[in-house]
Computed example of a mutant assay.
Amino acid sequence: MTITQLYYVLAVAENQNFTKAAEKCFVTQPTLSMQIQKLEEQLDIQIFDRTKKPIELTEVGKKIVTQARNIVNESYRIQDIVDQQKGFIGGEFKLGIIPTVMPTLLPMFLKSFIKKHPKVKLKIEELTTEEIIARIKDGHLDAAIAATPLENENIKERVLYFEPFVNYIPKGHRLHTSKKINTTDLNVDDMLLLEDGHCFRDGVLNLCKAFKNHTDDKFQLESGSIETLIKLSDEGLGMTLLPYLHTLDLNNNEKENLIYFNEPTPAREVSIIYHKSELKMQIIEALQDVISSIIRGAIAFQNVQIISPLPK
Protein backbone atom coordinates (compact mmCIF):
# COMPACT_ATOMS: atom_id res chain seq x y z
CA MET A 1 0.00 0.00 0.00
CA THR A 2 1.37 3.42 -0.97
CA ILE A 3 0.48 7.05 -0.36
CA THR A 4 0.11 7.44 -4.13
CA GLN A 5 -2.50 4.69 -4.28
CA LEU A 6 -4.49 6.32 -1.49
CA TYR A 7 -4.21 9.68 -3.27
CA TYR A 8 -5.65 8.09 -6.43
CA VAL A 9 -8.51 6.56 -4.41
CA LEU A 10 -9.39 9.99 -3.00
CA ALA A 11 -9.37 11.49 -6.49
CA VAL A 12 -11.77 8.86 -7.85
CA ALA A 13 -14.02 9.19 -4.79
CA GLU A 14 -14.22 12.94 -5.37
CA ASN A 15 -14.74 12.90 -9.15
CA GLN A 16 -16.74 9.63 -9.36
CA ASN A 17 -14.94 8.99 -12.63
CA PHE A 18 -11.57 7.34 -13.36
CA THR A 19 -10.76 9.51 -16.38
CA LYS A 20 -11.43 12.80 -14.57
CA ALA A 21 -9.50 11.58 -11.53
CA ALA A 22 -6.50 10.72 -13.71
CA GLU A 23 -6.55 14.19 -15.25
CA LYS A 24 -6.58 15.78 -11.79
CA CYS A 25 -3.63 13.59 -10.74
CA PHE A 26 -1.71 14.24 -13.98
CA VAL A 27 -1.39 10.53 -14.83
CA THR A 28 -2.90 8.33 -17.50
CA GLN A 29 -6.20 6.63 -16.77
CA PRO A 30 -4.72 3.08 -17.14
CA THR A 31 -1.97 3.93 -14.63
CA LEU A 32 -4.46 5.21 -12.06
CA SER A 33 -6.86 2.28 -12.59
CA MET A 34 -4.04 -0.26 -12.29
CA GLN A 35 -2.80 1.19 -8.99
CA ILE A 36 -6.29 1.21 -7.47
CA GLN A 37 -6.89 -2.34 -8.67
CA LYS A 38 -3.61 -3.47 -7.10
CA LEU A 39 -4.71 -1.93 -3.81
CA GLU A 40 -8.10 -3.65 -3.98
CA GLU A 41 -6.38 -6.99 -4.69
CA GLN A 42 -4.01 -6.51 -1.78
CA LEU A 43 -6.91 -5.74 0.58
CA ASP A 44 -9.14 -8.37 -1.03
CA ILE A 45 -12.11 -5.99 -1.25
CA GLN A 46 -13.79 -3.65 -3.74
CA ILE A 47 -13.42 0.04 -2.93
CA PHE A 48 -15.58 1.20 -5.84
CA ASP A 49 -18.78 -0.16 -7.36
CA ARG A 50 -17.93 0.15 -11.03
CA THR A 51 -21.37 -1.00 -12.17
CA LYS A 52 -22.90 2.30 -11.02
CA LYS A 53 -22.90 5.45 -13.15
CA PRO A 54 -21.39 7.60 -11.79
CA ILE A 55 -19.04 5.32 -9.87
CA GLU A 56 -19.93 4.90 -6.20
CA LEU A 57 -18.02 3.85 -3.11
CA THR A 58 -18.88 0.52 -1.56
CA GLU A 59 -19.72 0.52 2.15
CA VAL A 60 -16.20 -0.56 3.07
CA GLY A 61 -14.89 1.86 0.47
CA LYS A 62 -16.46 4.77 2.38
CA LYS A 63 -14.55 3.77 5.51
CA ILE A 64 -11.32 3.37 3.55
CA VAL A 65 -11.68 6.84 2.01
CA THR A 66 -12.12 8.40 5.46
CA GLN A 67 -8.94 6.73 6.68
CA ALA A 68 -7.07 7.43 3.44
CA ARG A 69 -7.81 11.14 3.80
CA ASN A 70 -6.28 11.10 7.30
CA ILE A 71 -3.18 9.25 6.07
CA VAL A 72 -2.62 11.52 3.08
CA ASN A 73 -3.05 14.62 5.26
CA GLU A 74 -0.55 13.26 7.76
CA SER A 75 1.93 12.59 4.95
CA TYR A 76 1.76 16.27 4.04
CA ARG A 77 2.73 17.07 7.62
CA ILE A 78 6.24 15.74 6.98
CA GLN A 79 6.86 18.57 4.52
CA ASP A 80 5.32 20.95 7.05
CA ILE A 81 7.82 19.82 9.68
CA VAL A 82 10.71 20.39 7.28
CA ASP A 83 9.40 23.82 6.24
CA GLN A 84 8.97 24.93 9.84
CA GLN A 85 12.44 23.67 10.77
CA LYS A 86 13.91 25.72 7.93
CA GLY A 87 11.72 28.73 8.73
CA PHE A 88 10.32 28.52 5.19
CA ILE A 89 7.02 30.27 4.45
CA GLY A 90 6.08 29.42 0.90
CA GLY A 91 4.35 27.08 -1.52
CA GLU A 92 0.78 26.89 -2.73
CA PHE A 93 -1.91 27.90 -0.26
CA LYS A 94 -5.64 27.62 -1.03
CA LEU A 95 -7.72 30.20 0.82
CA GLY A 96 -11.52 30.58 0.82
CA ILE A 97 -13.25 33.83 1.78
CA ILE A 98 -16.98 34.40 2.30
CA PRO A 99 -18.67 36.92 -0.07
CA THR A 100 -19.42 39.58 2.56
CA VAL A 101 -15.74 39.70 3.64
CA MET A 102 -13.92 39.29 0.32
CA PRO A 103 -14.48 42.74 -1.29
CA THR A 104 -13.52 44.75 1.79
CA LEU A 105 -10.81 42.71 3.54
CA LEU A 106 -8.90 41.30 0.56
CA PRO A 107 -7.77 44.68 -0.86
CA MET A 108 -6.65 45.70 2.63
CA PHE A 109 -4.17 42.87 3.23
CA LEU A 110 -3.31 41.12 -0.06
CA LYS A 111 -0.61 43.50 -1.33
CA SER A 112 1.08 43.62 2.08
CA PHE A 113 1.01 39.84 2.46
CA ILE A 114 2.45 39.21 -1.03
CA LYS A 115 5.21 41.75 -0.40
CA LYS A 116 6.10 40.23 2.98
CA HIS A 117 5.80 36.58 1.87
CA PRO A 118 6.59 36.45 -1.86
CA LYS A 119 7.20 32.69 -1.87
CA VAL A 120 3.57 31.93 -0.93
CA LYS A 121 1.38 31.23 -3.96
CA LEU A 122 -2.10 32.19 -2.78
CA LYS A 123 -5.08 30.69 -4.57
CA ILE A 124 -8.15 32.56 -3.35
CA GLU A 125 -11.79 31.61 -3.91
CA GLU A 126 -15.02 33.35 -2.88
CA LEU A 127 -17.19 30.68 -1.27
CA THR A 128 -20.16 30.40 1.08
CA THR A 129 -19.55 29.13 4.61
CA GLU A 130 -21.18 25.81 3.73
CA GLU A 131 -18.85 25.36 0.74
CA ILE A 132 -15.84 26.34 2.84
CA ILE A 133 -16.57 23.76 5.55
CA ALA A 134 -16.99 21.00 2.95
CA ARG A 135 -13.74 21.91 1.16
CA ILE A 136 -11.71 22.16 4.34
CA LYS A 137 -13.01 18.75 5.37
CA ASP A 138 -12.10 17.25 1.98
CA GLY A 139 -8.66 18.85 1.94
CA HIS A 140 -9.38 21.19 -0.98
CA LEU A 141 -8.82 24.34 1.11
CA ASP A 142 -5.90 24.99 3.44
CA ALA A 143 -7.80 27.69 5.34
CA ALA A 144 -10.59 30.23 5.02
CA ILE A 145 -11.79 33.55 6.38
CA ALA A 146 -15.35 33.36 7.63
CA ALA A 147 -17.79 34.53 10.29
CA THR A 148 -17.56 32.47 13.46
CA PRO A 149 -18.14 30.66 15.79
CA LEU A 150 -19.11 27.69 13.61
CA GLU A 151 -19.25 25.03 16.34
CA ASN A 152 -17.66 22.41 14.07
CA GLU A 153 -15.49 19.84 15.81
CA ASN A 154 -13.29 19.33 12.71
CA ILE A 155 -12.43 23.02 12.35
CA LYS A 156 -10.23 25.29 14.44
CA GLU A 157 -10.76 29.05 14.57
CA ARG A 158 -8.44 31.99 15.19
CA VAL A 159 -10.25 35.30 15.65
CA LEU A 160 -8.99 38.09 13.39
CA TYR A 161 -11.37 40.91 14.33
CA PHE A 162 -14.88 41.88 15.44
CA GLU A 163 -16.84 43.76 12.78
CA PRO A 164 -19.86 45.79 13.96
CA PHE A 165 -23.23 45.86 12.20
CA VAL A 166 -24.21 49.34 10.98
CA ASN A 167 -27.73 50.43 10.05
CA TYR A 168 -28.26 51.84 6.57
CA ILE A 169 -31.53 53.79 6.85
CA PRO A 170 -32.71 55.99 3.95
CA LYS A 171 -34.63 59.25 4.22
CA GLY A 172 -38.32 58.73 4.86
CA HIS A 173 -37.78 55.61 6.94
CA ARG A 174 -39.23 55.66 10.47
CA LEU A 175 -35.73 55.40 12.02
CA HIS A 176 -33.82 57.78 9.73
CA THR A 177 -33.83 60.73 12.16
CA SER A 178 -32.52 58.64 15.09
CA LYS A 179 -29.07 59.53 16.40
CA LYS A 180 -28.49 55.96 17.51
CA ILE A 181 -30.78 52.98 17.76
CA ASN A 182 -31.19 49.86 19.87
CA THR A 183 -31.50 46.33 18.53
CA THR A 184 -35.07 46.33 19.87
CA ASP A 185 -35.95 49.04 17.32
CA LEU A 186 -35.32 46.67 14.40
CA ASN A 187 -38.20 45.15 12.53
CA VAL A 188 -37.26 42.35 10.18
CA ASP A 189 -40.41 42.99 8.14
CA ASP A 190 -39.08 46.28 6.71
CA MET A 191 -35.50 45.09 6.26
CA LEU A 192 -33.72 44.18 3.03
CA LEU A 193 -31.65 41.02 3.32
CA LEU A 194 -29.11 39.01 1.40
CA GLU A 195 -30.33 35.86 -0.31
CA ASP A 196 -30.49 32.57 1.56
CA GLY A 197 -27.08 30.92 1.92
CA HIS A 198 -25.23 34.01 3.17
CA CYS A 199 -24.08 33.77 6.78
CA PHE A 200 -24.43 37.56 7.17
CA ARG A 201 -28.15 37.15 6.44
CA ASP A 202 -28.38 34.53 9.19
CA GLY A 203 -26.59 36.88 11.58
CA VAL A 204 -29.09 39.65 10.85
CA LEU A 205 -32.02 37.28 11.37
CA ASN A 206 -30.53 36.04 14.65
CA LEU A 207 -30.11 39.65 15.78
CA CYS A 208 -33.75 40.52 15.01
CA LYS A 209 -35.26 37.32 16.35
CA ALA A 210 -33.41 37.64 19.63
CA PHE A 211 -35.72 40.51 20.54
CA LYS A 212 -38.93 39.91 18.63
CA ASN A 213 -40.94 36.86 17.74
CA HIS A 214 -41.47 36.50 14.01
CA THR A 215 -43.45 33.50 12.89
CA ASP A 216 -43.31 34.34 9.18
CA ASP A 217 -39.93 34.71 7.46
CA LYS A 218 -41.18 36.67 4.46
CA PHE A 219 -39.32 39.74 3.34
CA GLN A 220 -39.92 42.47 0.83
CA LEU A 221 -36.76 41.93 -1.16
CA GLU A 222 -33.64 39.80 -1.09
CA SER A 223 -30.44 40.30 -3.07
CA GLY A 224 -27.18 38.53 -3.77
CA SER A 225 -24.95 41.51 -2.96
CA ILE A 226 -24.63 44.21 -0.34
CA GLU A 227 -24.17 46.85 -3.06
CA THR A 228 -27.61 45.99 -4.47
CA LEU A 229 -29.16 46.19 -1.00
CA ILE A 230 -27.84 49.74 -0.66
CA LYS A 231 -29.33 50.75 -4.02
CA LEU A 232 -32.68 49.17 -3.16
CA SER A 233 -32.68 50.96 0.18
CA ASP A 234 -31.95 54.28 -1.57
CA GLU A 235 -35.10 53.67 -3.62
CA GLY A 236 -37.12 53.68 -0.40
CA LEU A 237 -37.73 49.93 -0.33
CA GLY A 238 -36.53 49.43 3.24
CA MET A 239 -33.50 49.62 5.51
CA THR A 240 -30.61 47.17 5.68
CA LEU A 241 -27.64 46.31 7.86
CA LEU A 242 -24.06 46.58 6.63
CA PRO A 243 -20.79 45.13 7.91
CA TYR A 244 -18.69 48.05 9.18
CA LEU A 245 -15.89 47.72 6.60
CA HIS A 246 -18.45 48.10 3.80
CA THR A 247 -19.33 51.57 5.14
CA LEU A 248 -15.81 52.94 4.64
CA ASP A 249 -16.14 53.14 0.85
CA LEU A 250 -19.59 54.77 0.76
CA ASN A 251 -19.90 58.23 -0.78
CA ASN A 252 -20.87 61.23 1.36
CA ASN A 253 -24.57 61.05 0.47
CA GLU A 254 -24.72 57.37 1.38
CA LYS A 255 -22.88 57.96 4.65
CA GLU A 256 -25.69 60.30 5.72
CA ASN A 257 -27.89 57.20 5.90
CA LEU A 258 -25.64 55.41 8.39
CA ILE A 259 -26.95 55.14 11.94
CA TYR A 260 -24.97 53.29 14.61
CA PHE A 261 -26.24 51.09 17.42
CA ASN A 262 -26.07 51.95 21.09
CA GLU A 263 -23.47 49.90 22.94
CA PRO A 264 -22.91 47.03 23.18
CA THR A 265 -22.73 47.19 19.39
CA PRO A 266 -23.92 44.02 17.62
CA ALA A 267 -20.99 42.58 15.67
CA ARG A 268 -19.82 39.54 13.83
CA GLU A 269 -16.66 37.64 14.69
CA VAL A 270 -14.40 37.11 11.66
CA SER A 271 -11.77 34.38 11.94
CA ILE A 272 -9.27 32.43 9.94
CA ILE A 273 -10.41 28.81 10.09
CA TYR A 274 -8.61 25.58 9.21
CA HIS A 275 -8.76 21.81 9.67
CA LYS A 276 -7.96 20.41 13.09
CA SER A 277 -5.01 18.56 11.53
CA GLU A 278 -3.26 21.98 11.51
CA LEU A 279 -1.40 21.69 8.22
CA LYS A 280 0.61 24.66 6.84
CA MET A 281 0.40 26.46 10.17
CA GLN A 282 3.33 28.75 9.34
CA ILE A 283 1.32 30.29 6.48
CA ILE A 284 -1.86 30.48 8.56
CA GLU A 285 0.04 32.34 11.29
CA ALA A 286 1.59 34.65 8.70
CA LEU A 287 -1.87 35.51 7.34
CA GLN A 288 -3.17 36.12 10.84
CA ASP A 289 -0.28 38.46 11.68
CA VAL A 290 -0.64 40.55 8.52
CA ILE A 291 -4.44 40.85 8.70
CA SER A 292 -4.52 41.58 12.43
CA SER A 293 -1.92 44.33 12.14
CA ILE A 294 -3.82 46.03 9.29
CA ILE A 295 -7.31 45.72 10.73
CA ARG A 296 -6.39 47.31 14.07
CA GLY A 297 -6.27 50.70 12.43
CA ALA A 298 -9.61 50.25 10.65
CA ILE A 299 -11.94 49.06 13.42
CA ALA A 300 -11.85 50.88 16.75
CA PHE A 301 -15.02 49.49 18.38
CA GLN A 302 -14.46 47.87 21.77
CA ASN A 303 -17.80 47.17 23.46
CA VAL A 304 -19.44 44.65 21.12
CA GLN A 305 -21.96 41.82 21.30
CA ILE A 306 -21.11 38.88 19.02
CA ILE A 307 -24.02 37.64 16.89
CA SER A 308 -23.93 34.01 15.76
CA PRO A 309 -23.62 33.38 11.99
CA LEU A 310 -25.31 29.98 12.30
CA PRO A 311 -28.91 29.66 11.02
CA LYS A 312 -31.38 29.18 13.84
Rank of each mutant, 00 (worst) to 15 (best):
I3G: 08
V9N: 03
V9S: 14
N15M: 11
F18Y: 15
A21M: 07
A22R: 00
C25N: 08
C25K: 13
Q29K: 11
Q29M: 04
S33T: 11
Q35E: 05
Q37W: 04
Q37H: 06
K38G: 01
Q46N: 12
I47R: 04
D49P: 09
K53D: 03
L57M: 10
G61W: 07
K63E: 13
V65R: 01
N70D: 14
S75R: 12
Q79I: 11
Q85I: 14
G87T: 08
F93W: 03
K94P: 03
L95H: 07
G96E: 09
P99S: 07
T100I: 12
V101E: 05
M108T: 13
S112E: 15
P118Y: 01
K121M: 10
E130T: 12
I133N: 13
R135W: 07
D142A: 09
A144R: 08
A147D: 07
A147H: 06
A147F: 14
A147Y: 13
E151C: 05
I155H: 01
E157K: 04
F165K: 00
N167G: 15
Y168A: 04
K171V: 13
K171C: 11
S178N: 13
T183N: 09
T184A: 11
V188Q: 06
L193R: 03
E195G: 13
E195A: 10
D196A: 10
G197C: 06
F200C: 05
F200N: 00
R201V: 05
V204W: 02
L205K: 05
D216M: 03
I226L: 12
T228I: 02
L229S: 02
L229C: 06
I230W: 08
K231N: 05
G236R: 07
M239P: 03
T247A: 07
L250Y: 06
L258R: 10
L258A: 12
Y260A: 07
F261L: 12
F261G: 08
A267N: 04
Y274D: 04
Y274T: 03
I284L: 00
E285C: 05
D289W: 05
S292N: 09
S293G: 04
G297P: 05
A300L: 13
S308E: 01
P309L: 02
L310H: 02
